[in-house]
Computed example of a mutant assay.
Amino acid sequence: MNLPVADLARSTTFYGALGFAKNDAFSNEQASAMVWSNAISVMLLEHAFYSTFTDKPIADTRAVSAVLNCLSFDDKPAVDAFHAAAKSAGGSEPRAIEDKGFMYGGAIEDPDGHTWETMWMDQNWTPPTGA
C-alpha cells in the first residue's frame, strides 16, 4: 500500500518503532519501503512524489477517514506492545484497546492520521448456540 506522508524521516522513524523494517533497495529521498512481518509492504511517499501517481487531492487523514487498515497479532501482549510503541513514537490512539474475550484490539494513528486497527482473535472460540 502507498501512504502519503508530510515528513518522510518522521514517518520512517515511526514505522520503524512499530517493527516495520526499511527496505533500502526500494527507498530513496522521496519514499521509504517499509515491510512488516514479511507480509505487508507499505510505501511511505512524500506528498509531492505521491501526487505523481494520482490527480486526486491528498486526503488529510487527520480530518477524514480514507481507509482502515488492520493488523492481526499472535497474542494480547503483542497488541499491547504495538499500541505502546505507537504512542511512544508520536502516534495516537483514537480507539483504546477493548477486550471482548474472543477478540482484543483497538486502533492507532500514525503522525499523518493513517489508521491502523489492531486485533487478536481466539481461533478456538465458537459463538454460543441459540436456544
Rank of each mutant, 00 (worst) to 15 (best):
A96N: 13
N28E: 15
F82S: 00
A17I: 08
A66D: 11
V79Y: 05
A84G: 09
Q30K: 15
F102A: 15
K100W: 06
Y50I: 01
F53C: 06
V64E: 12
P77T: 03
G113T: 06
S32D: 12
V42K: 00
H83E: 13
P57V: 03
I97G: 01
D80A: 05
P94Q: 13
G91H: 06
E98Q: 14
N23V: 02
I97Y: 03
D112H: 03
E98M: 13
V42E: 04
K100A: 09
E117H: 12
F53T: 07
S72H: 12
D74S: 10
S65A: 12
A84E: 14
A86D: 04
M119P: 02
T52W: 05
A31S: 15
S27G: 10
D24H: 13
L44P: 00
E46T: 12
F82E: 01
G113I: 05
A85C: 08
S88N: 13
A89T: 02
A85D: 11
C70G: 08
W120C: 02
L68H: 14
F26Q: 14
D80C: 05
A107D: 11
M103E: 07
D99I: 00
R95M: 15
I40Q: 00
S41R: 01
N69H: 07
V79P: 03
F82R: 01
G90D: 12
S37N: 14
V35Y: 00
S65M: 13
L18P: 01
A33K: 00
R62E: 08
N23Q: 11
S88D: 13
K100G: 04
Y104A: 11
T61D: 07
A84M: 08
A63M: 10
F20H: 05
F82G: 01
D75K: 12
S41D: 05
P94A: 12
V42N: 01
D55G: 13
L45Q: 11
I97W: 02
W120Q: 01
Y15T: 08
W120M: 05
A107M: 15
W116M: 04
D80P: 02
P111L: 12
N28I: 11
M121C: 04
A39R: 00
M103P: 00
F20M: 08
N69Y: 04
A48Y: 05
Y50V: 00
E98T: 14
G105L: 14
A85Y: 06
T61E: 13
K100V: 02
N38E: 05
S41Q: 07
L68C: 07
V79W: 02
I97S: 01
A25P: 02
A31R: 12
H47V: 08
G105D: 15
K100Q: 08
T52L: 10
H114A: 04
S88H: 09
D60P: 04
H47A: 10
A96L: 11
S37V: 01
D122Y: 11
E98I: 11
D110L: 04
E29W: 07
T115L: 09
P57Q: 09
S51N: 11
G105R: 12
I97P: 00
W36I: 07
G91F: 02
T12V: 14
T61Y: 05
G105Q: 15
H47Q: 13
